[in-house]
Write a protein that binds this DNA or RNA. Sequence first.
RNA 1: GGCGGCAUGGCCAAGUGGUAAGGCAACGGUUUGCAAAACCGUCAUCCCCGGUUCGAAUCCGGGUGCCGCCUCCA
Length: 510
Amino acid sequence: MQIRFFNSLSNKVEDFEPVESGTVRMYSCGPTVYDYAHIGNFRSFLFSDLLRRFLEVAGYDVIHVMNITDVGHMTDDAVADGGGEDKMELAGRRLKEDKKSGKVEVGAVEDPSDPYQVARFYTDSFLSDGRQLGLKVAGEYPERMFHATEHIDDMQAMITELIDRGHAYVAEDGVVYYSVESFPGYGRLSGNTLENLQSGAGGRVLDEHQDQKKHPADFMLWKADSAHIMKWDSPWGEGYPGWHIECSAMARSRLERDVIDIHTGGEDLIFPHHECEIAQSCGATGSDSFAKFWMHVRFLLVEGEKMSKSQGNFYTVRDVLDGKVTGSAVHPAVLRYELTKTNYRKNMNFTSQGLQDSATAVRRLNDFSAKLEEQTGGEAAEIDNSHPVLAEFLSSMADDLNVAGALGALLPWASVSRMPSDPHEALAVLRKINQVLAVAPLESQDDASGEGSSTAGDGEEAVSGWCRELDAARADKDYDAADRLRDQIIEAGYDVSTSPEGTTAKKRLA
RNA sequence: GGCGGCAUGGCCAAGUGGUAAGGCAACGGUUUGCAAAACCGUCAUCCCCGGUUCGAAUCCGGGUGCCGCCUCCA
């Protein structure tokens, strides 16, 4: 099976081969932890998870790492190089407000003016969201997910290398800048070559107040600022690192290679972030490449509109799970399915209807899974990847993660009314597919979350009592009572199914 | 103004030269105390214009629309 991915570096679909046979090293730009992650963030993170899971099922050892950005982002957007205040500081003030108003539990953050506590709070939120949604790397914290603030040494070492190799300089104001003119490959990823940047600058202000820099596109590596809320000693004065350097430094130290296989992120990161990473990494290592494959996720729209706080269509993961979109609680597996079912290179349209569709599909896969488990007693056959459904599923995924094609193979097969002739084999196939999709069985998410499942158990007992009452009413031909009970169960968030064997109710997933 | 990406039925979406997968919704039927579920069946010529070809959703040229980046941002 030849795996092919679209490479943002060449804007072409290319055959994928890892640098080291059998092992894939991938780096994903992770969350910033001064706010809750939203569904757009998670589309990106789940894309990297799907990619990683697919590569694992395809037979690779995957070393997948993701950073947690807890330093280096500034609020002032008029000045790109360290203006305004640290977003962590702002987040601290907001948390303080939320604490007062009761939006954030007492005890969750003791001292909001401590940026490390703010980071800790939002890191925990992220890890909890991630684990619920089946994000493997979140379950591997802190081995494979780690904080930028714990890698300041690596960043400083890389900055030193860059200065030594003539790729960086200390400007008159004491700020360390990367010199883009020292790196001929600048612009290769984004198309924003120095030439293009210049010719495209018409009408736009390109840093006229950056007269300290040798070139307007030079970007900050270290800024001495003893007044800054988060600061470290350095050869260039007490201060903090630029935003881009953390990924270059951490990818190298954590993946232990100068050249890695795959680097992922949202499409907005192509420029300047990833362009700058390449310049830094290649500049420091002397290698002519940093990541062999760059894969970028397109943005998602919400009901056809851009997601924005002012439009009122801005959703965090917990908003969706709590039912802010659909009006009733959404199972994490449904959100995972919804956010991964559209190919990562297309803008996906996140809609309430889509969530409902996903819930139907997840239900279907789970019913199918449950029936197979029942038929086999959980005994799966030994299989390779040659089963027709599995083979088509994997070959679709191998084609630049064609999820829709893969689901096109899976869904018609996964039908409880046409059960496969060999359930042991089918169970093995489904389990393998679910290693990629991670939506059926649903329990895979519950282990990690720990919350919500206990209350669901209580509700289920009441509902199953109502089902027995409903059966009794129907036996008595007391249809008014039966209809009332049915409405009651539906009201409680369950789908009712009556059959000669009795009434059963299943929790609606969205 | 510069650099990229995308455009298939009501919705999600496969298909990369030979006469349009799959899912959801809808509609008709079977079933049902009624309904739901389930099952059977029905449902598109592919943004526009021009070209290449025996033949194009698929290749080429020109438009149009949408998305991202060029300033923090998945």
